[in-house]
């Protein structure tokens, strides 16, 4: 049994201690925005925040997050209006979209730590999040877009002077 807070809601789960957080979230809590892509921390599709840190839920035993505060894509914002989400839409980033929950959670954690990441810092933080549609250049643009928005306190659209 594990107790945790997920997207601000307290839940207790009667599941095996070694059940990965991913499957507890998907099959017991019923939130399906967090995706299964590899089951081995190789693709990043399952990324959630555990106490604010980007975490691969597919290899995180539920027992290890007992008492933790977990945020999934559904809890990142109330209306899909987190700066990273807005930037993703503004830059037209998704294609199939399956990896994007994980990409967005990873990017949101990156920007929380580093509000103005360089290209190298974006590479380092994001290279574990795979996208088979090849949206990487749009993801990079969206991260910079969100960084501008955060710093300027606006929507991050580029202003020509």
């Amino acid at each position: 049994m594990a107790r945790l807070t997920i997207n601000g809601r307290s839940v207790s789960l009667e599941v095996a201690d070694d059940m990965p957080l991913l499957w507890a979230i998907r099959d017991y809590i019923g939130l399906t925005g967090t995706k299964y892509g590899c089951g081995a921390s190789l693709c990043g599709a399952c990324t959630v925040h555990v106490d604010g840190k980007a975490t691969r839920s597919c290899i995180t035993p539920i027992a290890s997050v007992d008492g933790s505060d977990v945020t999934t894509i559904e809890g990142l914002s109330s209306g899909g209006d987190h700066p990273v989400q807005l930037a993703w839409v503004a830059e037209d980033a998704p294609q199939c979209g399956f990896c994007q929950s994980g990409q967005i959670m990873q990017a949101a954690a990156l920007l929380a730590d580093n509000p103005d990441p360089s290209d190298e810092e974006i590479d380092k933080a994001m290279k574990g999040n795979l996208c088979r549609c090849g949206t990487y250049n749009q993801i990079r643009a969206a991260i910079k877009h969100a960084a501008r928005a955060n710093m300027a306190g606006n929507d991050g659209e580029e202003v020509s002077v």
């Binding site: 559904e74 839409v89 980033a93 994007q100």
Partner: peptide, 18 residues
């Protein structure tokens, strides 16, 4: 711009797996 982006950034887009 893509019409499906909003639901693909908030976890609501329903894939077969979901």
């Amino acid at each position: 711009k893509r019409l499906d982006s909003p639901q693909k950034v908030n976890g609501q887009a329903e894939f077969g797996m979901d």
